[in-house]
C-alpha cells in the first residue's frame, strides 16, 4: 500500500525530471543554428488575411447602384455575380482579365494544417466505424460453430496482420481502387478499415472467449437461441472487457492514418510536409503536427475512459 506522502514525493520527482527533459530540449534548440519562428505557423493553421475573389473570364466590371458587383463577359455567357465582398478592387467599367482580383473578403479561413487535421479526423473516424463492423463480424465468425466461418476469419486475420499496412494501402489503391474505380479517400478508408478490422477481430474474439462458458449455457437453457445469447448476454460482457485493448487499437488507427499520405491524401502529415516547404520552419511544423496528433488520440482515450466508467456500473 502506497502512502500519501510517498505519492506526493513521486509526483515531485516526476515534475523535476520532466523539467530537466524539457529544458534540455529547449537548450538543445538554442544551441543549434536555428531561428525559431513560431509566428510563421499561424497562417497555415488559421489564415486571417483577407482573400481574393478572382474573375473567371475576361469581361467588364459592373457595379450597380446597390453596390452589387458583376462581371459581364466579353462573349455571350451569363455574368459572374459577386454578392458578398468587403473591399472592392475593380471599379465600374474596368476591363477585367481572367484571374484578376476584383474584390476581397475579410475574415478567417482554415489553413492547410487545420484542413489536414480535419482530413485525419474524418478518415480515422470513418475507418474506425468500418473497422468495428468488420472486427465484430469476423470476431463472431472466429468463434462460430461452422468450420467454414472460422477458416474464413482466420485467413482474413492472418493475411492482414502478416503484411505491412503501407503495402496494403498501395494494393487497395492501385489494384482494388482501379477495379472498382475508387477515389483516394475511399481507398484510404478501405485500407485502414480492413487493416484495423483484423486486429479488432482478434480483440473481439479474445473478449468473447473471456466470458465464462456458463454464461452461454445459462442463456441457452433459458431458451435463447445462439444469436440472442450472443447479443444480450455474451457481447455486452465481451465489449466491456475489450474496451481497453480497443482503445489502443483506435489510437494506432489514428496514427496509422498518416500513411495514407502516400496515395496523395492531404491528411495532417501530408499537410505538414507541404507546409514545411512553404514556411521554412520544419521544427515548428513537426512539433505542431505531433501535438495535434496527441490532442486527437488523447481525446479518444478520454471518450473511451468515460465509456468504461459507465459500463463498470455492474462491478
Amino acid at each position: 500500500m502506497q502512502t500519501q506522502s510517498s505519492r506526493w514525493l513521486g509526483h515531485g520527482i516526476y515534475l523535476v525530471i520532466m523539467a530537466i527533459l524539457i529544458s534540455g530540449v529547449y537548450f538543445a534548440g538554442q544551441k543549434i543554428d536555428y531561428t525559431w519562428h513560431w509566428e510563421r505557423l499561424w497562417p497555415y493553421i488559421i489564415n486571417t488575411e483577407s482573400h481574393d475573389i478572382v474573375a473567371v473570364t475576361d469581361g467588364t466590371a459592373v457595379v450597380d447602384a446597390s453596390g452589387r458587383l458583376s462581371i459581364t463577359p466579353d462573349y455571350g455567357d451569363d455574368p459572374q455575380i459577386i454578392e458578398r465582398y468587403d473591399t472592392l478592387v475593380s471599379r465600374n467599367g474596368d476591363l477585367i482579365f481572367q484571374g484578376d482580383t476584383v474584390a476581397r473578403i475579410d475574415g478567417w479561413r482554415f489553413g492547410p494544417i487545420a484542413e489536414g487535421l480535419w482530413v485525419t479526423i474524418k478518415i480515422s473516424f470513418i475507418s474506425l466505424i468500418f473497422a468495428v463492423l468488420l472486427g465484430v463480424m469476423f470476431g463472431l465468425m472466429r468463434v462460430a460453430h461452422g468450420q467454414v466461418w472460422r477458416n474464413l476469419a482466420v485467413t482474413y486475420v492472418e493475411v492482414i496482420r502478416g503484411t505491412p499496412l503501407l503495402v496494403q494501402i498501395f494494393i487497395v489503391y492501385f489494384f482494388i481502387g482501379t477495379v472498382f474505380d475508387l477515389d483516394r479517400f475511399t481507398a484510404g478508408v478501405a485500407a485502414l478499415s480492413i487493416f484495423t478490422g483484423a486486429y479488432v477481430a482478434e480483440i473481439v474474439r479474445a473478449g468473447i472467449q473471456s466470458v465464462p462458458v456458463g454464461q452461454m449455457e445459462a442463456a441457452r437453457s433459458l431458451g435463447m437461441n445462439y444469436v440472442q445469447a450472443m447479443a444480450y448476454v455474451i457481447m455486452p460482457q465481451a465489449i466491456k472487457r475489450t474496451l481497453p485493448p480497443l482503445a489502443g487499437q483506435f489510437i494506432n488507427l489514428i496514427k496509422d492514418s498518416s500513411l495514407v499520405s502516400v496515395i496523395s491524401i492531404t491528411d495532417l502529415t501530408k499537410a505538414g510536409r507541404e507546409v514545411v516547404s512553404g514556411s521554412f520552419a520544419p521544427f515548428e511544423v513537426w512539433f505542431t503536427v505531433a501535438a495535434l496528433y496527441l490532442v486527437v488520440t488523447g481525446g479518444l482515450s478520454l471518450v473511451i475512459q468515460r465509456l468504461e466508467k459507465r459500463l463498470s456500473a455492474s462491478d
Binding site: G214, Q215, E217, A218, G223, V233, K240, S314
Partner: peptide, 18 residues
Amino acid sequence: RTEVGMVFQSFNLFPHKT
C-alpha cells in the same frame, strides 16, 4: 429449453444485469 429450466452450481447469473 424454455420448458426445462436449469439451475447451475456456479449460479451463472448475467453480471451485467441487475
